[in-house]
Design a binder for these strands. Sequence first.
DNA 1: CTGCGAATAT
DNA 2: CATATTCGCA
Length: 372
Amino acid sequence: MMNYADNLQMCKEYVEALEDERKKIQVFHRELPLCLQLVTQAIEACKQQLSTTSTEHDGQSECSEQTSSDGPVIEEYKFIPTKRTASFGEEEEQYHKSKKNNVGNEEISTKKSDWLKSVQLWNGSPDRSPEKDSPRKGVVEVKKNGAFHPFTKENKISGISPQTATVGVSNSTATSSTVETANATTSTGGGGGGGSRREDKEGQSQRKLRRSWSPELHKRFLRALKQLGGADVATPKQIRELMKVDGLTNDEVKSHLQKYRLQTRRPSPAMASSGNPQAPQFVVVGGIWVPPPGETTTVAPGNGIYAPVATPAWPLQKSSPAGSLTISNDKQQQKQSHSSNSEERSQSDDGVHSNSPATSSSTHTATASPAF
DNA sequence: CTGCGAATAT
DNA sequence: CATATTCGCA
């Protein structure tokens, strides 16, 4: 009998608030599946009450599950390395990000970017959303993430949405944030026979989803590389250990290293064709590279033999953006913020020196002609 | 293991 | 086409 008009109003507001919150946490539906569920339930309940108390119902249709594409959900952190055979078709979709970021509320945007940082850059942990799996009852569920980046869409900002972008590519990550820490993959060492990669079951050698090496990752990679003394002397394992990125496998590093090396030292023969005919070609003398007369190249101390061939700035920029406009967010430069960071590495070299006196290893290909 | 090339997938 | 992963070989 009270003015339940008031009551109604309150309820409505409540629901709205709930929905609002739900939107916010929707992005975390993977981290907080229960949370989302609860909120959703609450909303449902409230709505039901509302509808029963009054015949009028809002235009708001029901809220579909997390799969809905309502909110301006940001990126997609899907990336499930080990896709379940078939079981639940919940989210094997993988990522589909053709969504345009509609800048709804700036507040939200900022918030988003804010917590976005908190989220590790490399999620991709096979976190199942709902409550299942987990052989052991361990409800504790250590968050074993901190691993791979999702598909870093990073600066893929399509058009609008200026700051939202995870410009963090190189800002925050470098020094802190990234929670990735200690992670010895040498698990098999003591334990005992745990199978490592291949599942005994039907070895689905399912190709690992290709993970893009985000700038951060690459950065770490480079750092490690440098610390080890160059791309040519660094070995994948060391690198991996040095990067301390959890989830990174040896092979991945290996592969990356390979690519890196190729990209980095290939360009030499390129200029031969029409570039600069008189480009000082280096000649091999006694097994070392020697610059042609006229230029005294300062060889790196310690490792002689360095030749200033070309500086391809690795991540090879694509000449044609193809759809995505080039962002001018170059302001990512390190700020002069004098934080008590004792870690300053002018690691901007990006695979510059990488010449190895590996003379011509050509013979390597020599597959002794079999039989004939 | 490590390096490398090739096949292959995205 | 560029990049990533896997495989086989040395």
